[in-house]
Design a binder for these strands. Structure first.
Lengths: 211, 211
DNA sequence: TGTATATAACTGTCCGGTCAGTTATATACA
DNA sequence: TGTATATAACTGACCGGACAGTTATATACA
């Protein structure tokens, strides 16, 4: 009797290396779909393939999980922009075009947009998160852009203008496009790559040095 | 004995007419400050000057309160935009500049930004709200802008270009500025009015008809 | 006095976080 | 190479607090 049900599939594996990233991935998905508050830690856990208590072995609280998520998902992008900017010092205009193309492409990716969207929703309640995002992501990327713009003005390929206003003019439309399509689910404008180039043509023509 | 504490300030008044609007106002404030989920109905009630159960006399649930709120706050904006656009038919460029100035000013007002911010945060969980906002505000306003742009192209004061791309270029930077200052609490760029004009100069120069 | 409007007190549920106990794997040793 | 022991990784069941929504009762006003 008592046939020891023997298939004995093991109930779980030790995978301490892989867990953190999987949990972050699951958290991003849940937070995005339900919003930070409405997302349940139990669902994050289930999605990551372990138990709720298991999640707490890696991240001490829901809030800290959120912060870790932002750091992991977004900081690398800002660093990439900085690297690009530092690299392309002697062709600022060309580098700007390149960065714009890359940025526009990233902004089209729902996973990338997810984080800033979260930040928008949470900045009121968690000022730390807003500040972290501003200093570690937004200002880094924008700063790199502005260095390039400044360089272009210095070498005379752009006419003098308020650098911050110009960087805003470069970023704004793409950011807006991202919100339009991802948040409002409105239809997107034109063919991506062509689109970016067309806009930069307009903007740069508007900023041509006087003839 | 039993001195019935007699100052007898009456505990409440019947004010059925005024309540709904006051509750909506309070809800907007609480939802904005704490986020929809974290906001407590009890606080909304207190802020509106009645008890929690009182709120439920007027709005059947927290979700419905949210929907009513968005509807109430959004309709006036849509109407104003439409009015502006219809008004300035024969000087499209001038009207565009005017609208840009007004829009930029509005976007600087935290109360105005509050609703779109909520929408961004909630669009994932409440697709209805996102769609309502898109069709009743976003597309109306953008459509009006695009009519003007189209008119300007037709009369030859702007060169041909993708109309949607141009409207995005007009709106994007100001939207971005609003998010930068209100969400990230970053410092704002330049003197408001001057700033708007400078940017439009650049953009419109970039769109000048060929000489 | 009757009824619409208000409240205080209450209930049920949900969820973040904890903890005692279980299982997988690494290591020591025969 | 096989078995005992140690420890890291993981789980299931639970707790306490918070809060949306309800109910029973009181008060203003016609």
């Amino acid at each position: 009797m008592a046939a020891r049900s023997p298939p004995k599939q093991q109930r779980w594996q030790r995978r301490a290396e892989a867990r953190p990233e999987e949990i972050l991935e699951a958290a991003l998905a849940e937070f995005t779909e339900r919003g930070f508050d409405a997302a349940r830690m139990e669902d994050v856990a289930k999605r990551a393939g372990l138990s709720k208590a298991g999640v707490y072995l890696y991240f001490p609280s829901k809030n800290l999980l959120l912060e870790a998520l932002i750091e992991a998902k977004v900081a690398p992008i800002a660093q990439q922009v900085r690297a690009l900017a530092e690299h392309g010092g002697n062709d600022p205009l060309g580098t700007l075009r390149m960065i714009a193309a890359i940025a526009a492409q990233k902004l089209r990716d729902a996973d990338v947009i997810a984080v800033p969207r979260l930040v928008v929703g949470l900045s009121g309640r968690f000022p730390d998160i807003a500040e972290y995002y501003r200093t570690h992501v937004a200002e880094v990327a924008r700063g790199a852009l502005e260095d390039l713009i400044e360089a272009a003005m210095q070498q005379g390929s752009l006419r003098r203008a308020d650098v911050k206003a110009v960087s805003r003019a470069m970023i704004g439309p793409f950011f807006f496009e991202a919100m339009w399509t991802h948040v409002l689910r409105g239809e997107s404008t034109g063919a991506p790559d062509q689109d970016v180039h067309n806009y930069l043509d307009i903007l740069l023509k508007g900023l041509e040095p006087r003839p």
